[in-house]
């Protein structure tokens, strides 16, 4: 298979880029693909701790770029998943330690070994974002249903297109179905209408994500988690499968209806 290098970016900080990279990377690896996740947030290393690999770092991305070590010395294999490898960010350096051309070369070498290279971009529209974008073929934009995040996403979409990386795909994270039903939160149709790019998936607001990242695990260990299914479907769509959107509304399910009948009768 021809390898794909995809940057996951957002404009606004804290919308869930790192969490998304960790889970899509894991999902693709569990599907049998060889995946590298690259932490391009130089100076604010995070992907390692989300994946639970923080104690295994010896070398980092800047070491590779400066030639202090070989690429495969810096890659950390996630033994629980098997096919998943992390290239950690440097923690004590700044984004100025890396040039876009160097990131391009790095992504080029990663292509030789991996089916997918997922790059975790820093927030913002400056150097760090430019570096993360440089070596990618395409981009995924993460936004939450909040006005500020959607506005910043629009700005990033323009920059990705200007950099000739094609039209990015959208992931809506932290959708709260109860708020949507009350008309108090933008829903997927609103956001897609505003940003006019294709939707790759929707991830619900899910406490299981916080629990899992506290432990350095993925939500795939939790069978009941809705977000786990959402991430799996996104991974399948990246693989080219046509998968329907996940129904986030529990009240449509048998258990949900039962729960509702019970609670209305009691309360």
């Amino acid at each position: 298979m021809l390898s794909k290098v995809i940057v996951i970016t957002s404009g606004k900080g804290g919308v869930g880029k790192t969490t998304t990279v960790a889970h899509i990377g894991t999902a693709l690896a569990l599907m049998g693909r060889k995946v590298a996740v690259v932490d391009a947030d130089i100076g604010l290393r995070n992907l390692d701790i989300i994946l639970g690999l923080e104690n295994r770092i010896v070398y980092d991305l800047v070491n590779v770029i400066e030639g202090t070590c070989k690429l495969n010395q810096a890659l950390i294999r996630d033994k629980r998943v098997g096919n998943l490898y992390l290239l950690p960010a440097a923690q004590t350096r700044t984004k100025e330690a890396v040039e876009p051309e160097q990131m391009k070369a790095l992504c080029h070498s990663l292509r030789e070994t991996f089916d997918y290279v997922l790059i975790d971009s820093p927030a913002g529209i400056e150097g760090g974002f430019r570096n993360a974008l440089a070596g990618a073929d395409s981009a995924i934009i993460v936004t939450t249903p909040h006005v500020s995040a959607v506005r910043d996403a629009d700005r990033i979409i323009g920059l990705v297109e200007a950099a000739e990386k094609g039209i990015p795909k959208l992931i809506i994270n932290r959708l709260d179905i109860e708020m949507v039903k009350k008309g108090e939160m933008l829903d997927q149709d609103d956001i897609v209408d505003i940003l006019s790019i294709g939707l790759l998936g929707i991830i619900p607001e899910d406490p299981a994500i916080v629990t899992a990242s506290n432990r350095g695990e993925s939500v795939f260990n939790n069978d009941k988690s809705k977000s786990a299914e959402a991430y799996r479907r996104i991974a399948r769509r990246i693989e080219g499968e046509d998968v329907p959107l996940l129904d986030l509304d529990d009240n449509h399910s048998f258990l949900g209806r039962l729960k509702r009948i019970l609670t209305t009768n009691i309360g």
């Binding site: 629009d154 009350k182 108090e184 829903d187 609103d190 505003i194």
Partner: peptide, 23 residues
């Protein structure tokens, strides 16, 4: 109006301006 409707309206307006920056 529900708050999501004002969110949508306000975003649409502000993006007209945001997008109108030419390099």
């Amino acid at each position: 109006q529900s708050s999501k409707d004002s969110a949508k309206q306000r975003l649409k307006l502000v993006l007209v301006h945001d997008r109108a920056t030419i390099s």
